[in-house]
C-alpha cells in the first residue's frame, strides 16, 4: 500500500529534497508551505505521517502540531519535526505540542525514511 505523507516546510529547497527522498521510496508526498497552508492541505488527506518544519511564516511548526492534534481525526497521526534545531528544549516544546519524533536538518534521506518507518510503520 502506498503511504502518504504531508510535509510542511517554507523552504522550497527543503520541499524539493523531501519530495526526492520520499518519492524515491514510493511514498506519496503532499506539500504545504507553512502551518496555515498545512492545515488546509491536510483537509481531506489521511496521511500516514506528517513532517513539519518549525520556523515558518504565518503559523510555525509548534502551532501547526497543536492545531493538528486538536482535530480528533488526526490525534494519532505521527508527526515528525524537521528542524535544524536539535536543542533539547525545542524538542521538548515540540513534544508538548504533540510531535511524535524529530529529524535534524540537514537530513539523510535514508534516515528520514527510517524515521517514517519508525512512527508510521
Amino acid at each position: 500500500m502506498t503511504r502518504t505523507v504531508l510535509a510542511v516546510d517554507d523552504s522550497r529547497t527543503m520541499r524539493d529534497m523531501l519530495r526526492l527522498a520520499l518519492t524515491e521510496v514510493g511514498i506519496k508526498a503532499h506539500f504545504a508551505e507553512d502551518g496555515v497552508h498545512g492545515l488546509e492541505v491536510l483537509e481531506g488527506l489521511e496521511p500516514d505521517a506528517i513532517i513539519t518544519d518549525i520556523n515558518m511564516p504565518r503559523m510555525d511548526g509548534f502551532g501547526f502540531i497543536s492545531a493538528v492534534r486538536k482535530r480528533p481525526e488526526y490525534r494519532g497521526v505521527p508527526i515528525l519535526v524537521l528542524t535544524t534545531e536539535s536543542a533539547p528544549e525545542l524538542k521538548q516544546r515540540a513534544r508538548e505540542a504533540g510531535a511524535t519524533g524529530w529529524i535534524v536538518k540537514p537530513f539523510d534521506p535514508a534516515k528520514l525514511v527510517r524515521a517514517i518507518d519508525m512512527v508510521a510503520g
Binding site: A21, E24, T84, P109, A110
Partner: peptide, 24 residues
C-alpha cells in the same frame, strides 16, 4: 539558543538512484 547545527552533506545515495535508472 540557535542549536548545535552541524553541517552534514546530504548524499542522496539512495539505492536504486543509480545512473542506470533502475527502480529503487
Amino acid at each position: 539558543e540557535i542549536g548545535d547545527f552541524q553541517p552534514m552533506a546530504m548524499s542522496l545515495d539512495l539505492p536504486g538512484l543509480g545512473s542506470d535508472g533502475d527502480l529503487p
